[in-house]
Simulated scan of single mutants.
Amino acid sequence: MTRPSSGTPAPAPRPRDSAATTELLLAAATAEFAEYGFAGARIDRIAERAGANKRLLYVYFGDKDAVFEAVLRRQIGELAEQTPLVDGDLAAFGAARFDYMAAHPDAARLAAWRRFERTEHWSQTEAESYRAKVDAVAAAQREGRLDDSLPAIDLFAIVLRVTESWLDAPPALKALADGGDPTAQSRLSEHRASLVETLRRLTEPRAQD
């Protein structure tokens, strides 16, 4: 027997907001990879963090490698946007990079995991970002605005590591910080000032004899 129609049409299924879902999955994947690295991360946990079906990860990104690369592209883009190298000013660049890493510990952890686990995997986007900065350093050296006693690529590499010198320092060294809290704002501000002074001394042109 056919039931009479109530006269009210059934609600249409809500369209999936793919952009919002992608953002949720990327945020969840970022947290997962930052905590566990590539090898330890699990697709199931990423989906659980995002409150989504794990099938969507494969639909939007592909396999685990593709998810990790998407996370790295996002991090590289945000870092490049927040830490521009203007006029070859490596001291200002280093300070901005320190600020970003201090405010985004997931980015610092991702970078550490990647150096440890994925040394042979890098994207063209990342390579181009570094090339542009190294070229900017070389131009500033030619124009006399930066010390030219070191190759541009080496000078830039040294600056990169110096910006993370406190954030990536051994725990036993951090424990020596006055006040006992290596992440306190006063400690970070003190180190930031030391960082900027170090980079200025390292990169400023040497006086000619």
Rank of each mutant, 00 (worst) to 15 (best):
G62I: 00
F93P: 01
A91N: 02
R118I: 06
A207M: 12
D99L: 04
A172L: 11
P205R: 04
G37N: 09
R206E: 14
L173A: 15
R131T: 09
R14I: 15
A34W: 10
A34E: 07
A102V: 02
A96N: 14
L57C: 08
T203P: 09
D135V: 01
A34S: 13
D89W: 06
A47W: 05
L173V: 15
G88V: 03
G94I: 01
A103Q: 07
D178H: 09
A52P: 03
L26C: 12
A140E: 10
G51S: 10
P182I: 00
A66M: 08
R16M: 12
A132C: 02
A39I: 04
I46T: 11
S5T: 13
R45M: 08
A34L: 07
L199N: 05
T2G: 02
L57S: 08
A27R: 15
R109G: 04
F93Q: 01
T119S: 10
T198H: 02
A10S: 13
L26G: 12
T203C: 15
L167I: 14
S149M: 05
Q141N: 10
F68D: 09
F68M: 05
H104A: 11
A139P: 11
R73D: 15
L188T: 02
V196S: 03
Q75H: 08
Q141W: 05
A136P: 03
S123F: 04
V159T: 12
I158A: 14
V59L: 09
P182L: 01
A41R: 11
A108E: 06
K133N: 13
S129I: 06
A107V: 10
S123N: 05
L160M: 12
A132T: 07
R55T: 15
I158K: 04
Y36L: 10
A103R: 12
L57P: 10
F61D: 01
A34Q: 08
P13S: 09
L26K: 13
T163L: 03
Q75A: 14
K174I: 03
Q124A: 14
V196A: 08
W113T: 07
R201Y: 04
R45K: 13
G51C: 06
S5N: 04
I76P: 00
S165C: 08
V71R: 07
L26Q: 12
E81D: 11
S5H: 01
I76H: 11
G94F: 00
A140T: 05
A50D: 08
Q82T: 04
A28D: 07
A111M: 09
A169K: 03
P205S: 04
G94H: 00
D135N: 08
P4T: 11
L90H: 03
G144D: 05
D135T: 06
F98H: 07
A111R: 07
Y58I: 07
R16F: 06
F93V: 02
F33M: 13
V59E: 12
V137G: 10
A27Y: 09
L90Q: 03
G77N: 01
